[in-house]
């Protein structure tokens, strides 16, 4: 098998099809986790950043990225992780926020506005009816990135993204 030449655009397109293992309606590029793609001859290197440092899906994401690039015919693939700059929910793309909302997950509020050390949670909007009259039922959800709420207006329980 001869080494295949790919463009960075092709690599990005392939990564756009790699789902977040815990929220399959969005991809790793939608989430803003892929920070850099470089192509050097037949060698491709992808840099990604973890969402939460203790996220158990990290090795799955790393493997999936490698597989997606190898599926383009590239043999020499390097997947690196970086902590800098730290991932923020502000990097989640607009159309992905809408998909999260349709999936029943309240997208995150802008992270820049909340002070770093605060004892109060940020306001959250019900993904179904849009009401801000919601009650947090658990400040930690089924994954590290989400919390649980109930909407006091339409009575629906829902998950909300933490603003990080």
């Amino acid at each position: 098998m001869t080494a295949v030449q790919v463009t960075p655009e092709q690599v990005w397109a392939a990564l756009a099809a790699v789902p977040d293992p815990e929220i399959p309606v969005v991809s790793v590029t939608d989430m803003g986790m892929v920070r850099d793609v470089t192509v050097d001859g037949g060698r491709v290197s992808v840099t990604f950043t973890p969402t939460f440092s203790g996220c158990p899906a990290l090795h799955v994401i790393r493997d999936s990225i490698g597989e997606a690039v190898r599926a383009l015919g590239v043999e020499d693939v390097e997947v690196r992780s970086t902590l800098t700059p730290p991932w923020t929910t502000d990097w989640i793309k607009e159309d992905a926020r809408e998909r999260l909302r349709q999936y029943g997950i309240a997208p995150p509020a802008p992270a820049d506005e909340s002070p770093l050390i605060t004892l109060d949670p940020e306001p959250t909007r019900c993904p179904r009816c849009g009401s801000l009259n919601v009650r947090m039922t658990a400040s930690f959800g089924p994954t590290l990135c989400k919390r649980l709420y109930v909407c006091e207006s339409c009575r629906e329980p829902f998950e909300g993204f933490k603003s990080v």
Binding site: L83, T84, T88, F140
Partner: peptide, 20 residues
Amino acid sequence: TEVAAKAVREEKFHLQHTAL
């Protein structure tokens, strides 16, 4: 610096929760 910038964002959720 990099580790601290990452971890502090997570820690604020712990603090909100346990303070409550």
